[in-house]
Simulated scan of single mutants.
Amino acid sequence: MAARAVRTPLTLAVLSLLRERARHPYEIQALVRERHVDEVVKMRGGSLYDAIRRLAEAGLVTSVTSERAGARPERTVYAITDEGVAVAEALVRDYLRSPAQDFPVFVAGLAHILDLEPATAAALLRERRAAIQAEHDRVAAQLDADTAHLPRVVTLEADYAQALRVAELAWLDRVAAGIEAGELPWPEGRT
């Protein structure tokens, strides 16, 4: 199995939660949401189950038991292995120390903003600002309501994501206003 297949933010989240104690995937999924890890880790459909399968194939987690509660389907409980602990620690170290080069679509759009009329570009930046403000407000309300019982260190990733939203809101305000005021003029012949 390629090392890259298990070196993802989602697999790190799984390993970290299993490091606390053995869990079944449904409990992991619930904790990812409760702790707002899903604000910074992409988790869709069966991706959690795929991640656990990859981790098991790589020997980083192992099934320890199956449990059934009432009429619910049987749930496999997984535990982290010693190798999984080592990989989790290595991933955290790598993720914290080294800036990664991401290729977000927004930055690609900024690289080609001159393909639009200035007024259109400013309007689209204002639309983005409104969407980010709504997301910021939604997450702030959830954090206030859902995490009062959690130590702040457990939700640092959500706190960081909120700080980035605040910074982006200020940046979008400055750039959109600069375009609208003509302080960021388009070169002649563009658009």
Rank of each mutant, 00 (worst) to 15 (best):
I28H: 01
I28Q: 02
Q29R: 06
A30S: 05
L31G: 00
L31E: 02
V32D: 00
R33F: 10
E34V: 01
E34D: 13
E34F: 07
V37G: 04
V40T: 13
V41D: 04
V41W: 02
M43R: 09
G45N: 14
G46W: 00
S47A: 08
S47T: 12
S47N: 06
L48S: 08
Y49R: 06
D50C: 11
D50Y: 06
I52G: 02
R53N: 09
R54H: 01
L55E: 00
A56Q: 01
A56F: 05
A58T: 06
L60P: 05
V61Q: 07
T62S: 11
T62N: 04
S63C: 02
V64Y: 04
T65L: 09
S66M: 01
R68W: 00
R68F: 03
R68L: 03
R68E: 09
G70S: 14
G70C: 09
R72P: 00
P73R: 07
E74Q: 06
R75D: 00
T76Q: 05
V77W: 01
V77S: 07
A79F: 10
A79C: 08
I80N: 02
I80M: 04
E83L: 12
E83S: 08
G84E: 02
V87W: 11
L91W: 02
V92Q: 13
V92T: 11
R93A: 11
D94A: 11
D94Q: 10
Y95P: 02
Y95G: 01
R97S: 05
R97D: 01
R97M: 03
S98C: 01
P99W: 05
P99A: 07
Q101C: 09
D102F: 10
D102P: 05
D102G: 03
F103V: 09
F103C: 01
F103Y: 12
P104H: 03
P104D: 04
V105F: 12
V105N: 13
F106P: 14
A108L: 12
L110P: 09
H112F: 05
I113G: 12
L114Q: 04
D115F: 14
L116W: 14
E117S: 11
P118Q: 10
A119W: 01
A121W: 08
A122T: 00
R128M: 14
A134L: 10
A134V: 03
H136Y: 14
H136T: 03
H136K: 12
R138P: 02
R138D: 09
V139Q: 07
V139A: 11
A140S: 15
A141D: 14
A141F: 05
A141T: 09
L143K: 13
L143Q: 15
D144Y: 00
A145M: 02
T147V: 13
A148V: 10
H149Q: 12
H149Y: 10
L150G: 13
L150Q: 12
P151V: 11
P151I: 01
R152Y: 11
R152K: 13
V154H: 02
V154G: 03
T155S: 09
E157C: 10
A158I: 00
